[in-house]
C-alpha cells in the first residue's frame, strides 16, 4: 500500500497527460469530423467534387495507416519538410487528424441516415441550408452517431498511450518506468485500474447523453 502511495504522484502526472491529449483531441476532432462530413456529402459542383476527392484521400490515408506511424511521421518526418512541432503539438496534430477522419466517416453515415424528406420539408418551410443543418439535420445526426462516437471516444483513451513513441510521458509510460525501476508489475496493475476508471466514467457519461437524446425517436 505504501508503495502504491509512493508511485501515485508519477502515475497521476502521466494520467494528466493522457487526459489532456484525450480532451483536446475530442475538442478538435469532433467538430472537424462534422465539418469534413458536410464536405463529404453529395458534391454537385466541380469545386465540391475536388474537395470531396481530397477528403476521401485524406480519410483513406489516416484510416489506412497506424496512428503510431502517423505520430512518428508528424514528429520525425515533417521536420524534413521544414514543419517542426514540439512533442505535445505533434501528438495533438496527429491525434486530431486521425480521429477526425474516423469521426468524419461516422458523421457521414449519420447524415446519410437522415431522410432526404427532412431536407425537402425544410426547403418547403423556406429554411436556409444552414438553418436546416442547425435545427433539423444535426440534432438528428448527433443522436444517430452517438453510440459509434462513444466507441471511438473509449478507444481514444487507450490510444493516447501511443504518445510514448515520441517521448511524451503519459499514464502507461509512467507505469512502465516505475515497473522497470522497481521490478514489479504493481504499477502496471494500477495503470490498468486507472484506465478502467477513466473508461467507466466515460461510459457512464455517454449513457447519460444517450438517455438525454431518448426524448424522441
Amino acid at each position: 500500500m505504501q508503495y502504491l502511495i509512493e508511485i501515485l504522484p508519477s502515475l497521476m502526472s502521466g494520467a494528466q497527460m493522457t487526459l489532456s491529449i484525450f480532451a483536446l483531441t475530442i475538442i478538435g476532432a469532433i467538430p472537424l469530423g462534422m465539418i469534413l462530413a458536410v464536405g463529404l456529402m453529395r458534391a454537385k459542383t466541380w469545386l465540391m467534387k475536388g474537395v470531396h476527392a481530397l477528403l476521401t484521400a485524406y480519410i483513406w490515408l489516416f484510416r489506412g495507416t497506424p496512428l503510431l506511424l502517423q505520430l512518428i511521421f508528424v514528429f520525425y518526418g515533417l521536420p524534413i519538410l521544414g514543419i517542426v512541432f514540439d512533442r505535445y503539438s505533434a501528438a495533438l496534430f496527429a491525434f486530431i487528424l486521425n480521429y477526425a477522419a474516423y469521426f468524419a466517416e461516422i458523421f457521414r453515415g449519420g447524415f446519410a441516415a437522415v431522410d432526404r424528406g427532412q431536407t425537402e420539408a425544410s426547403m418547403m418551410l423556406n429554411l436556409t441550408r444552414w438553418q436546416t443543418l442547425r435545427y433539423v439535420v444535426i440534432p438528428q445526426v448527433v443522436k444517430i452517431v452517438l453510440p459509434s462516437i462513444g466507441n471511438e471516444v473509449i478507444n481514444l483513451v487507450k490510444d493516447s498511450s501511443l504518445v510514448y513513441v515520441i517521448g511524451l510521458g503519459d499514464l502507461l509510460r509512467a507505469g512502465n518506468v516505475a515497473s522497470a525501476r522497481d521490478v514489479t508489475l504493481l504499477p502496471l496493475v494500477m495503470v490498468g485500474v486507472i484506465y478502467l476508471v477513466l473508461t467507466l466514467v466515460l461510459t457512464l457519461g455517454l449513457k447519460l447523453l444517450e438517455k438525454h437524446f431518448s426524448y424522441y425517436r
Binding site: Q118, P139, R217
Partner: peptide, 18 residues
C-alpha cells in the same frame, strides 16, 4: 417557394422528430 405561395403536406409527413 421563396415567396411562401406553396405549402406541402408530404406523403410521410416529414415532421421533424427532434
Amino acid at each position: 417557394r421563396l415567396d411562401g405561395i406553396i405549402g406541402v403536406v408530404f406523403q410521410n409527413f416529414e415532421l421533424f422528430p427532434n
